[in-house]
């Protein structure tokens, strides 16, 4: 209960600021309309109009909430194309688009995590790999993803690979790096004494890795997984932005901006944020369970 109150307070303050900003940003349009029509508008008129425009500069929170409801529950349960009516998810619902994004995110995340861990194992065990590979890994992250994503999509499309895979590749590209950096640090976490102890047992490199480096790295793994999964989601959404993608939260964002549907954009944005938060929370829960089982208090 104690932790809920501050969170609610912050949320309340944010919503309040949001309303204030919506009124401020949308008022100009209301005044322009009134001037064109040659009518006087009172303050209360402005107030009610700014919060209910069809294409506001900044939609009010309740407008976004209504859009979220309509494009999820309402669309699926009551809609003509909804899952209740047709047995498949409606391509107009955020659940459908969220699922498309989520599946590419998870695939890319799994691939990126695997790659990050493998590279970290190599780097920790081979000086040559450390020297030769690490600079490339760092350089790879300085290239703007927005520049790379369209190329990946276009190049892969030209050889007939479309849909899930290209997006997952971009997601993996973004998520392998935090995992790599975190795991290199994690595998190197054991101190000299712990390594010397295993040396006195004449342990092999594999034994040292399996019994000391790997367990030592688990807390680092989860810290980097949290960053990595959020990065994978960003990568997937960026991968959905280039023209051609018709499904996914990124495509929703893009089509919203084509048609000036700010409410739709914000709904998709909030859905993406909620997805990211949910994924990070899930990783956090698994972290607590695993560390608890291992006898380590996080």
């Amino acid at each position: 209960m104690k932790s809920v109150l501050p969170i609610l307070t912050v949320l309340f303050a944010l919503v309040l600021i949001w309303y204030g900003a919506a009124i401020g940003l949308n008022a100009q349009w209301t005044r322009d309309q009134a001037a064109r029509a040659g009518v006087e508008v009172s303050f209360s008129d402005i107030l009610s109009d700014t919060l209910s425009q069809a294409r506001p500069k900044l939609p009010a929170p309740h407008q976004v909430a209504v859009e979220l409801y309509q494009s999820t529950w309402d669309e699926e349960v009551n809609g003509r194309r909804g899952i209740v009516a047709t047995g498949t998810l409606s391509n107009r619902s955020l659940i459908y688009h969220g699922w498309v994004t989520l599946s590419a995110t998870m695939l890319g995340f799994a691939f990126g995590t695997g790659l990050g861990i493998l590279l970290a194992v190599g780097i920790v065990h081979s000086k040559a790999m450390d020297m030769s590979f690490m600079p490339w890994a760092i350089a790879s992250q300085t290239v703007p993803i927005l520049a790379i994503a369209p190329m990946v999509i276009v190049v892969l499309a030209s050889i007939g690979i479309k849909g899930l895979i290209p997006k997952a590749i971009i997601a993996a590209y973004l998520s392998f790096f935090p995992v790599l950096v975190g795991m290199v640090k994690g595998f190197r976490a054991p101190d000299t004494m712990q390594l010397d102890l295993l040396k006195t047992y004449n342990a092999s490199r594999f034994g040292t890795f399996w019994r000391l480096r790997l367990p030592s790295s688990v807390p680092y793994l989860f810290a980097s997984l949290k960053v990595g999964i959020a990065a994978a989601l960003v990568g997937t959404i960026v991968g959905e932005l280039p023209a051609g993608a018709s499904a996914g939260l990124g495509a929703r964002l893009l089509s919203g901006s084509y048609y000036g549907q700010t409410i739709q954009i914000w709904a998709a944005l909030l859905a993406a944020a909620a997805l990211a938060a949910g994924l990070v929370v899930i990783v956090g829960v698994i972290e607590r369970i695993v560390l608890g089982r291992m006898g380590m208090r996080s």
Partner: peptide, 18 residues
């Protein structure tokens, strides 16, 4: 060492927390 001739005790216990 290869014939496991000795056990070594360091200043810190260095037990694995997991």
């Amino acid at each position: 060492r290869r014939s496991r001739a000795y056990g070594y005790v360091f200043q810190a216990a260095g037990l694995y927390p997991w």
